[in-house]
């Protein structure tokens, strides 16, 4: 069995996520990575491509992106916290022009953006607000241990795993794998 994501790499990514500066993007060693700021208007991606009107960017329920001054639409799909998206970081700036610190990544011609900080006219805000909001929404302390490993305490994830197992094909597969890979 090959393991393409050993614990040391997960640890290294965690260190990078914790120490990212608010004023300069940090490399994550991603595919075809390009560290570069991104300036433009925060837009609702769905509304932007369909022509639907929106004033609220979906109130946190839509994917958000950046439309540059040249009219190019860039999907911003990741914030600077483990397993968290970026819309939560962009929503407070819906319809406003901002500059993001972060990086582009992708392959096969697809380019997406990872935001590490949002620069407004008055402040630079680290793109790390998602987990605290998750904690508040789910009744946990934003500074507590559950928030640090939010993905192990999210009720929807727990329900999905309880139903279909970690591999998603039933608990028998999980149990067989555990038996085969027991130390």
């Amino acid at each position: 069995m090959s393991n393409q994501f050993p614990p040391i790499r997960l640890f290294a990514l965690g260190l990078v996520l914790m120490t990212s500066s608010a004023n300069a993007a940090t490399s994550w060693n991603l595919t075809d990575e390009e560290i570069a700021p991104l300036t433009g208007t925060v837009v609702d991606m769905r509304a932007e491509i369909t022509g639907e009107t929106t004033q609220t960017c979906g109130a946190g329920k839509h994917q958000l992106g950046i439309k540059t001054a040249e009219g190019k639409l860039i999907p911003v799909i990741k914030n600077a916290q483990p397993f968290f998206g970026a819309s939560v970081e962009l929503l407070p700036h819906c319809g406003k022009v901002v500059t993001l610190d972060g990086l582009y990544t992708g392959h096969s011609g697809y380019r997406v953006y990872v935001v590490q900080a949002v620069q407004t006219e008055s402040a630079t805000i680290k793109a790390t607000t998602g987990v605290a909001q998750w904690a508040v929404n789910n009744g946990f302390d934003p500074a507590g241990k559950e928030a640090r490993t939010w993905y192990r305490h999210d009720p929807r994830i727990k329900a999905a795993i309880a139903k279909d197992g970690v591999f998603g094909i039933g608990h028998e597969a999980d149990e067989a794998w555990l038996k085969e890979n027991a130390e």
Partner: peptide, 23 residues
């Protein structure tokens, strides 16, 4: 590699990211 992020091997992580709002 991309293939490692498909199917059963990555199902659990895919749930994590979807719940976190990654498209």
């Amino acid at each position: 590699g991309p293939d490692a992020t498909l199917g059963t091997a990555h199902h659990h992580c895919a749930l994590w990211c979807a719940a976190g709002g990654v498209p």
